[in-house]
Nucleic acid binder design. Sequence first.
DNA 1: TATGAATGAGGGTTCATTCAT
DNA 2: AATGAATGAACCCTCATTCAT
Lengths: 209, 209, 209, 209
Amino acid sequence: MPIPREITRKEKEEAIFAAALQTIKEKGFHKTRISDIAQRARISYGLVYHYFGSKEDLFDALLDRWWEGLFELLSCVREAHDPMRERLASIIRYFLDTYQEKPELINIFITEISRSTTNLTPNRLEKFKEFLSITEQVVQEGQDEGALRADFKARYLTNIFLGALETFVSTMVLADQHLKDNAQKRRIAESILEVFLNGARQQLTTAKP
Amino acid sequence: MPIPREITRKEKEEAIFAAALQTIKEKGFHKTRISDIAQRARISYGLVYHYFGSKEDLFDALLDRWWEGLFELLSCVREAHDPMRERLASIIRYFLDTYQEKPELINIFITEISRSTTNLTPNRLEKFKEFLSITEQVVQEGQDEGALRADFKARYLTNIFLGALETFVSTMVLADQHLKDNAQKRRIAESILEVFLNGARQQLTTAKP
Amino acid sequence: MPIPREITRKEKEEAIFAAALQTIKEKGFHKTRISDIAQRARISYGLVYHYFGSKEDLFDALLDRWWEGLFELLSCVREAHDPMRERLASIIRYFLDTYQEKPELINIFITEISRSTTNLTPNRLEKFKEFLSITEQVVQEGQDEGALRADFKARYLTNIFLGALETFVSTMVLADQHLKDNAQKRRIAESILEVFLNGARQQLTTAKP
Amino acid sequence: MPIPREITRKEKEEAIFAAALQTIKEKGFHKTRISDIAQRARISYGLVYHYFGSKEDLFDALLDRWWEGLFELLSCVREAHDPMRERLASIIRYFLDTYQEKPELINIFITEISRSTTNLTPNRLEKFKEFLSITEQVVQEGQDEGALRADFKARYLTNIFLGALETFVSTMVLADQHLKDNAQKRRIAESILEVFLNGARQQLTTAKP
DNA sequence: TATGAATGAGGGTTCATTCAT
DNA sequence: AATGAATGAACCCTCATTCAT
């Protein structure tokens, strides 16, 4: 009966994941000891090494989970040819949803990757640049379609958009705020979109005879 | 002759500062060893403890220097009652100027403070919140004056503004880009302001006959 | 059907033996992990404990196999009352043959027992001393028979004989040399015997008229 | 006053050396813990890392000391054009003297280098081969001069000579025997030389008309 | 028989910090 | 002021061994 085994394995892995997520959120990657994680997962620390090769590997596995979801979303966004506003809204929603459901995950993304040179192995930097690059392509398409103003580099607009989004999320992370209801989420998304788009959108020359 | 002594002391401190700045930029706070700093400053590592009490203290002194300049600028901005656009431009310029002149300092601000929960002692978090709060007041004043749209919380607009700014800078930090000329600096500042303001600015209902 | 079971057991044991031999040769006893052995034997590491009680036990079993063959040979040598040269030749041949057929076994004898105090449990030391002692008896008999000079202790002559033999073998072990053909084997045996005997043999006072 | 410092440093290093030597002799390199050494030297284990970079480095420093003395001796032997017997006697005396004065050092040479593949880094193997090679040259010169029989490879004779010598020493090491007096030392040296030379020496065809 | 999850003692190494000189 | 020897808490990782299944 191989199935029960599999279940056990997955469950244990999941427990370690959860414990690592929580602990790293609280203490940061560097100050997190393997034994902290093990203790929280109620296992011996040796077992962590049975499932993950090393602290770094565990960390990478954690990040992979984040990237996986994000890249999948971006892929969907690009395939579905929604209007620009909707595409950007999807990205914003993904961050806010993740923050709501797995605040630790987005916390780690923000604190350990997005702004930390320290833990940035070449591999991780690569993923991050890929993320920036894909988002830039979305923006570029917006410019091509005439939905976004084209007098600034796509990279610049991308920076402004992602910067705004990230700051919202990281401010909440820093303040340990919770997204109470969906209304708040909608309001935040609305703010970002409104402010970003009404500026970034191609300006109509309103002159009429 | 007490004066030469004073000079020696200040010079030594400065040397340690510079060495710390550079090293932390390269390796991150956590991976920076006191001996690394001492070596770069060409002094013995014991001496670091003569000037600064501990690694943490040295780090705090570093940050203080950053906060000092930033708060001074913000104070100037609030006193001079320039138009909104000019006030925001001052803030942007301060970040870009500092990045140009002391890239290590802004790097450390970005990577070790702005987005890192890890090193965030209550003290440091306080400073950071103060910074957010002052900027928010500037924005609030803009809303009060009618220069910025008031249908969003001042905090939200602040997030978007600082987020955009920070992302520009941190992207450059990550990529180890240099600000080649003042023209590029002006272009970046312009982008941020343009996009932010044309969205954040109170919308004129285009009068129709 | 008890026979297939027996066969399986023996085969498994043999597989573990072979894997252990090979691995210990490559990495040394200490650096060899049980899991290395298991992997090479294509079994789970838990099973090793089913057949052998512990790592030490497995090692002892390995050595026993070596000692068994060696003591059997020495017993034969002593029973057959061959001339001295032939007896010593038998011993040399045994080492060279074993080196040719089971280089790992002799390698382990040389590196882990013959010259290593580290792994020398009292038990193992005992076996080793027994080996020395029996060889010394052979030499002693040679002295008694007048085949070997008696002006040095039997122990001394034994040291010289075994030392020469062992160094040949261990030099080959170190250099990972292979005994290509029987001719080379014969040449080596010849060298040792020639040099040892023409010195160790009782000197004839060349009668002069 | 830099001199006292130097003395302290050297003394400490010496103390660590002695402690390491003794401990490795007793437990073998692998089973020796840094803390064992530190404890015996009556210092904290951290200090070992202050003087030697790592366990391996300390081990290498130990070996270097051995090689240094040995190579120096071999160099002397080759320069002084003594008769063959005297040259070989010098080598034997060096081993026996070292064994008498620093039994731990020769113990480590025998157990951890001469016969152990395990700790043999390429670097260390190189030194060992160099030693073999130089000794072989001495033997070769003996053959060229007609002092040693030339019907066997120099390498073979070298093996026999060094093997005999090494076995004497290592047997004493194993048995933890002490060289009581110089007489015993002389007797051992005599045995080795006698047996080796009377065989290895070019045979005189005694035929006289 | 057979598997591999689980445990935890053990050991190497780092490095902030202290302090005698 | 300045040095760097000395300390030892911390922490990562290995791996022999046990045991439920």
